[in-house]
Simulated scan of single mutants.
Amino acid sequence: MGVAKVFIGVDPHRLSATIEVVDGRERLLASGRFGTDKAGYAAMRRQVAGWPQRVWAVEGSNGVGRPLAQRLLADGELVVDVPAKLSARARLFDTGHNRKTDAHDAHAVAVVAVRTPTLRVLSHDDELEALRMLVDRREELTRQRVQTVNRLQRLLSELLPGEAKKDITALQVKAMLARVRPRDLAGKTRRRLAVELLAELVAVEKKIKASTVELRAAVLARGSTLMDLHGVGPVVAARILADVGDVARFADRNRFASWTGTAPLDASSGEQIRHRLSRAGNRKVNHMLHIAAASQIRLDTEGRVYYRRKLAAGKTRMEAMRCLKRRISDAVYRQLLADARAAEKTAKSDSVNADPGGHCGASL
């Protein structure tokens, strides 16, 4: 008789993790709360060591649960990702209320793992993890630049009323500050703060440029051809690669579009056939597709022709934009599949070339 498989539901936090071990019939086998430090992690691994056939189900493996999930993957564990929506639904159905405790959360995560065989299986990939960190850092720098520009705009509107620009650059700010020489204490302080913010803006823009160059090199080193698509630059390609992981987990382009949030939801009722905008899916990737669509509309591309054709057919600008985003989503899916096939073919060719095979020797 073989050893039964168990499912370990994990409710992760920054300093602790609560687990619950259940079998295939959702019977409780063990539970506990452990620290996320080295000693706590080792104790958690020891508690479940008696079940060799185990599946770790981590809630929010792309968020607060990512560090723990990556540690488990690095140690060769089988880890699946449980979306927070599924665990909340399971908690509500099992308890009759949606009150959260760590124990209830861990139980709900384990139950979802038992009942949902199609959960995404995580894989350990150092390159993708590094790419994800780089693109996250790039987004942080972009937000920092926006905040710095907004503070500069506020100070410039007080120093030079009526001369504020919508999209201001560091060179424009420098030229504007060179023209103003306040004599009062408040004006001098305001100008000094603006000069400091200008220095911060120059520094963050330099970091953004360097980060973009690094992302481009990382995407190309990955063997991706996503940047061949119009509107898809290093940042968009890096975010898609980092969040998609293995494209084989999507059965077809429709599943991929549902994950990217570009597939409209059916809201038909009776004889009235209509669809509504989907707010589900990966919102970061959806935003990247929106950037690609806006770039295609702005430039002379096939996407721009498609967009205008939808407008001529009577669709609104937002509806035409949604159609274009779905079109780009399908193109990205095809490109990811092509890259995966090319990488697989290259790997097979390398393995064949690495095998010397049989060699004929001299016969006596």
Rank of each mutant, 00 (worst) to 15 (best):
A238I: 01
R179Q: 04
E129T: 05
V135W: 06
V22T: 12
V82S: 02
L277G: 06
Q147G: 09
H107V: 08
E77C: 15
K345P: 00
V352M: 15
D355R: 01
G63K: 05
R327N: 11
V352G: 04
N353P: 05
D11Y: 09
E302C: 04
V112G: 10
A175W: 07
L265K: 07
L141P: 07
R151A: 14
R181F: 12
F34P: 03
L229K: 04
V173E: 13
A84E: 14
R66P: 15
Q47M: 11
A312I: 04
L152W: 08
G60N: 00
H104E: 13
R304Q: 12
D126N: 10
D300K: 06
D167R: 11
T262L: 04
E319I: 11
K165L: 14
N98E: 15
K174N: 13
D228H: 04
M321D: 02
R190V: 09
R279T: 08
L15E: 11
K284A: 05
R308V: 01
A242G: 02
A280Q: 13
A130N: 13
I19F: 05
S268M: 08
R279C: 12
T95F: 10
L337I: 15
N150S: 14
V202Q: 15
D228Q: 13
E271G: 08
L160S: 13
I8H: 06
R192H: 06
T316D: 05
A362G: 09
A280Y: 07
L86V: 01
R279Y: 14
M176F: 04
I19W: 02
A221G: 07
W56I: 00
F93W: 15
G187L: 09
L229D: 02
G65C: 03
Q335A: 12
D23T: 09
I168G: 12
K188D: 07
L152I: 15
L159E: 05
V332G: 11
R25T: 09
L152Q: 11
L198R: 01
D350T: 08
V48M: 00
K348N: 03
V213L: 15
S61W: 09
L324I: 05
K207W: 04
D81S: 10
V21I: 11
D300P: 06
A42H: 05
T346N: 03
L265Q: 01
L299P: 04
D136N: 15
V55A: 10
V236Q: 11
R154C: 11
L241D: 10
Y333R: 06
W51E: 01
E214A: 13
S329Y: 02
V111H: 02
E319W: 00
A17I: 06
Q272H: 13
R27N: 12
A69K: 03
L220V: 06
R181Q: 15
L122A: 07
